[in-house]
């Protein structure tokens, strides 16, 4: 039995408008970019009846499997590890609301003879996680998190927990949300303010990563889910230690620098560049933290998702892989 803190990040995958590599996640302003086109990236075959959230997740999944060496980088051949050693944890709050609302609305005005039977898989919210498994033969535990504002960070933690429990050696984590008229209508936000993309990580046992000769990009530290940002920070950074090198937070009104109880660290909010990220936020933040470790190889990253007004706030520490951590 390993503990969740013996798990590492061994890959980052992106399907974000205007982001070519992880360093782009450190941008703070939105740049004009074309929407991600899954048909161009993956080929149109097999995508026809998949909803956009699933298509975006499939793009990020392939990217992360290649970047972590779980698929050959040249695209030739299948998984480099047995499929039952790979779990999946996807987070999305809004992914299939378009299907649900459109089908319900069609039934309300007509009868069920007017709806397409091909929408059936998309009416089940776990369609994203199971489609990723199916595409790549990932037969480990398959979990779909729809856990509100903290959902992405929760999925990262549970991927580590699955590995620590010995249920799989590694898990693909994906955060995905889409912009469409249903989501816009329900959130009351314009499409250009919403994330339309997916971000992926591979979370792996340190020993399993070492066994296949892969260099970790980051190591997971303490995680919590608490009633407030302050309580979450206090829990993962007792007495403010170790002082983080960066704090990823997407609070609408973060505390002023120097406020007691909060770290006096530079802050970064990737939603400025990529839009309101909902269930994808925590995964996006973790990927951005990994990108920062590329240029700042010392200092931890504190990540918090959620507001004091939400049902809870999740907190997670990420360590640069080469740094000694407790």
């Amino acid at each position: 039995m390993t503990s969740a803190s013996d798990t590492v990040v061994t890959g980052v995958g992106l399907a974000l408008p205007g982001a070519r590599d992880a360093a782009d996640l450190l941008r703070t302003t939105r740049e004009p970019a074309e929407p991600v086109d899954p048909g161009t990236l993956l080929g149109r075959r097999g995508l026809r009846y998949k909803d956009r959230a699933t298509q975006l997740a499939l793009c990020a999944a392939r990217d992360v499997l290649r970047s972590s060496g779980l698929l050959p980088a040249d695209g030739e051949g299948g998984l480099t590890v047995p499929g039952d050693t790979v779990g999946v944890a996807v987070s999305s709050n809004l992914g299939n609301l378009d299907t649900v609302c459109e089908v319900a609305s069609a039934i309300g005005t007509e009868t069920t003879s007017h709806i397409s039977p091909m929408a059936l898989p998309n009416a089940s919210s776990n369609v994203i996680a199971s489609s990723v498994a199916m595409q790549h033969g990932l037969r480990g535990p398959n979990l779909m998190f729809c856990n509100g504002p903290t959902s992405g960070l929760d999925a990262v933690y549970w991927a580590a927990t699955l590995v620590a429990a010995g249920r799989c050696d590694r898990a693909v984590v994906i955060g995905v949300e889409t912009a469409n008229p249903v989501v816009e209508g329900l959130l009351g936000e314009a499409a250009e303010r919403l994330l339309d993309g997916a971000v992926a990580l591979v979370i792996e046992g340190e020993a399993a990563a070492r066994a296949r000769g892969v260099r970790p990009l980051a190591a997971l530290g303490a995680y919590t889910r608490r009633e407030s940002v302050r309580a979450a920070v206090e829990r993962v950074l007792p007495e403010g230690r170790p002082a983080p090198g960066i704090w990823l937070t997407s609070q609408e009104k973060p505390p002023a620098p120097g406020t007691p109880g909060f770290p006096d660290a530079p802050r970064h909010d990737p939603t400025g560049a990529f839009g309101r990220a909902d269930g994808a936020l925590g995964v996006l933040q973790c990927a951005a933290a990994v990108a920062r470790f590329g240029s700042h190889p010392t200092g931890t990253a504190l990540i918090t998702t959620g507001e004091d007004t939400d049902d809870a706030v999740a907190g997670l520490l990420l360590h640069p892989a080469r740094e000694e951590h407790p």
Binding site: S124, L143, F145, N147, G148, S151, E227, D310, D311, A312
Partner: peptide, 26 residues
């Protein structure tokens, strides 16, 4: 309110729970 789409919101209100997870696994 879309905050009620996952069950953590109601579990917090009723039981003071913050360590909550809603998984949608068919």
């Amino acid at each position: 309110d879309l905050g009620g789409l996952h069950f953590g919101t109601a579990l917090r209100e009723r039981f003071g729970a913050t360590w909550t997870y809603t998984i949608s696994n068919a």
